[in-house]
Computed example of a mutant assay.
Amino acid sequence: MNESVRCLVPGCGDAVAPDAPLGLCGEHLMTAAEWVGRRDGVADVLPTPCLLCGSRLGVRWPSGWLCAVCEWRHGEPVDGELPPPRVDVVYYLRFRDRVKIGTSARPRQRLRAIRHDELLAFERGDRSVEKRRHAQFAAERFGGSEWFARTDVLDAHIAALSDGVDDPWDLFARWTSEAFARQG
């Protein structure tokens, strides 16, 4: 839009900025943005990480912030009487040219105890899922251990699990926050 364009709001007549997306002056654009924010909320970075899931993504409403992942209201205390939810995961760790397939309900603790180069992926599941993966990749297994040779088949499985996931810990945080939400 060029500088000679005037605001479409009756009685305003202020100039519209050349890069304005609509024929509204700055003041009326702000009013429209505030109105949309009240109706739809505004996605933004939380002032501090969510106490439940650790996410930094939030939705800002006139009444306050909500975590965009678990919907915890920012600033509210976490109910310390609630036991933390159990979230079982199957983890895939790389150490040199091997992959460990294991399971844990407390992966942070468990992974600190295992020497590894990289966390490749998480899969939601317990020992039964872990057992199925051990059977599925039995040809790549080193003896009776939980360590497997890297093959195209195993790499493809891990790639499918991590498709669209930048950081496996973000996925675990989402599963944990969902479990908190189910607890009520």
Rank of each mutant, 00 (worst) to 15 (best):
L82N: 07
G64M: 03
G102W: 08
G102F: 06
L52A: 00
D152Q: 15
G64Q: 05
R124V: 08
E146K: 04
W65L: 10
L51S: 09
S55P: 08
P49Q: 00
E27S: 11
P10E: 06
R73W: 09
E140G: 07
D40A: 14
I114K: 06
A121F: 08
S177V: 05
H116A: 13
E3M: 09
E34Q: 13
P107E: 05
V99C: 14
G184Y: 08
S128I: 00
R73K: 14
G41K: 05
L161S: 05
A149G: 14
G143H: 02
E34F: 06
E178R: 09
A113P: 06
V129Q: 08
R112K: 15
P84S: 14
W65H: 04
Q136Y: 09
E146V: 00
E34G: 06
C67G: 09
D155H: 07
L161K: 11
E140C: 11
W61P: 10
R127Q: 14
T176P: 02
L111W: 04
D19W: 07
Q136D: 11
D40V: 12
E76N: 13
A32V: 13
R56I: 05
A135V: 04
P10L: 13
F142G: 01
V42D: 03
G143S: 07
H134V: 02
L82S: 08
G26D: 13
E178Q: 13
V59H: 02
D152P: 15
S4Y: 09
L120V: 04
D170L: 15
T176H: 11
R56H: 13
G184A: 10
L93K: 05
R174M: 11
L82V: 11
S162Q: 15
G75N: 04
S162C: 14
G102Q: 08
A113R: 15
Q109F: 02
R56C: 06
D170F: 12
L82E: 07
A173M: 03
D126Q: 14
E123H: 07
V153T: 13
V45M: 07
G37R: 15
V78T: 03
A15F: 03
H28M: 12
A43D: 10
